[in-house]
Design a binder for these strands. Structure first.
Lengths: 275, 275
DNA sequence: CAAAATACGTAACATACGATACAGCGCTCC
DNA sequence: GGAGCGCTGTATCGTATGTTACGTATTTTG
């Protein structure tokens, strides 16, 4: 079975006329980048004319040049998704129902963090550690526990951390306390909840800084957010996975704790003694 | 030093207006493929207008869109040359707060699952899927969100799933409803909570089957439990990590869902129609 | 609260790009 | 050696694409 364009070329290069073969060879030599450039550049690199390039891709079975490029891009994207990461985790031999789930989850985490720079996390952590404002956390149907988890930790190392629970009307009443210096952390993955969007809009109007945890398809709230964390959620299950977001949350909790070390440590000691 | 476009974006995203930030986030989310498409496609994906995309790339320092694309392509080409340096966010040698945290978490998960057989999980899943009894879930200070997360999912695919919230006295009142056929899922990691142990003992006396999620040092509840899941929790942070337990929980949710597929699917459809 | 500045999208524009028609050339096969 | 066929490049065309100008909305500042 022919799965990529390189193989396709190898398969058909024998049937090609001289100039097209030159095109094929240059594509292989600079695979696949030269194919993503313009016809003119490709033809120049191969030392043939543009129509030859077009005839070449036509012979490969593509309707037109853009279609050929899209195909190359898809191939590239697939490579970038899974590349060595699969081989990085030696597929456990006794692959029952566990393994694929774990594998997918580990991949999701790596992917999520690949798209997340230290600087971004540091910025968010700094924002969360800023003691001049309050911190509110809220989540959706399945992600509210993540908001709770984060709130449970943050509330220990600093004051003015509030998890917004209960009914929509109750959150709204808290809006009155929110202003420019405050931060609202929202967890919202598919299927995105209207109630959260409504709430986010109102908070946004009040100048509240929004930190959004969402999936790779980005909740509509992203538009309002100051910081967006997009986690991978796809796993071989009927449900989406929030594990990657969970780990990001833990990472942030750790970073904020470190920033507030001095005061935080004191606070923690104080709390211990209160028990 | 800024070596790739992703870093460049992370560096400047703070200085960008809202719409451009959205463009930036979309690019990161689908990095780098979306940037190789046309301005129109990029703008559609980001939900902004084409000029915004152009202003965005201009702000990154590029003269025009093609130049930006070339830069992305060069980056890609370099990556493809040396597969070793394929990471989008190279392990920052300096204050890399991310990497060690992520690495430790991934290790924890692998370790946790290494000590967890498919059979164990299947048994637990079967127990949770057994519809003759009720399912109760409860957790400690930091782990209660995990109980909530699991409850939120299980409650959708089967009836009689209850998360025990609120104060200790309220849980106790629910004991009256618990019997031999029922399952109690407890999350308890260090520092183990006396209140949970007390509750577990009473439930155990009533013949309730206990499924315990704990850390590798095992909560004292372990001796009462029918099934024990011991997750690794150590990470380079001031806090313990519950991420491994979270993933086990998700795995179980998936397994239970699969077992109840027939009835579960029907239930889910019914719920959708109720919205 | 008014005024200025900035951000953003709509719509018109120019151009660079892919596509096509056609003519020249070489090769092959009678 | 000549006719036919196929391969290839030049030149032209239509259009999709990036670009720019401008007006409106929004935010910021005095």
């Amino acid at each position: 079975m022919i799965s990529n364009i390189a193989e396709l070329i190898a398969d058909r290069i024998g049937t090609m006329p001289a100039s097209e073969r030159r095109a094929a060879q240059t594509l292989i030599a600079f695979y696949p980048m030269i194919g993503l450039k313009t016809v003119a550049e490709f033809s120049a690199a191969a030392g043939v004319s543009s129509p030859t390039i077009l005839r070449f891709v036509a012979r490969l079975g593509f309707q037109n040049y853009p279609e050929f490029q899209s195909s190359l891009q898809d191939e590239l994207a697939a490579q970038l998704q899974s590349p060595a990461t699969r081989t990085l985790n030696p597929p456990s031999p006794g692959g029952g129902t566990v393994s694929p789930m774990l594998e997918a989850t580990l991949d999701n985490m790596r992917e999520t963090f690949r798209h997340l720079s230290d600087k971004q996390l540091a910025d968010i952590a700094a924002r969360l550690a800023d003691r001049r404002g309050k911190t509110f956390l809220i989540g959706g149907r399945f992600t509210d526990p993540l908001a709770r988890y984060m709130a449970a930790h943050l509330a220990i190392i600093q004051p003015d951390v509030f998890h917004l629970a209960g009914q929509e009307s109750m959150w709204r009443d808290r809006l009155i306390d929110m202003g420019k210096r405050d931060v609202l952390v929202i967890f919202d993955i598919r299927r995105y909840q209207d109630s959260l969007l409504r709430f986010a809009e109102k908070a946004h109007q009040r100048g509240v800084q929004i930190v959004l945890f969402t999936d790779q398809w980005l909740s509509p709230i992203a538009r309002l957010a100051r910081h967006v964390i997009a986690g991978r959620t796809a796993v071989p299950s009927a449900w989406d996975s929030s594990a990657a977001l969970f780990v990001v949350a833990e990472t942030l909790i750790g970073a904020v704790t470190r920033q507030l070390e001095a005061e935080g440590a004191k606070r923690i000691r104080e709390m211990e003694s209160l028990r």
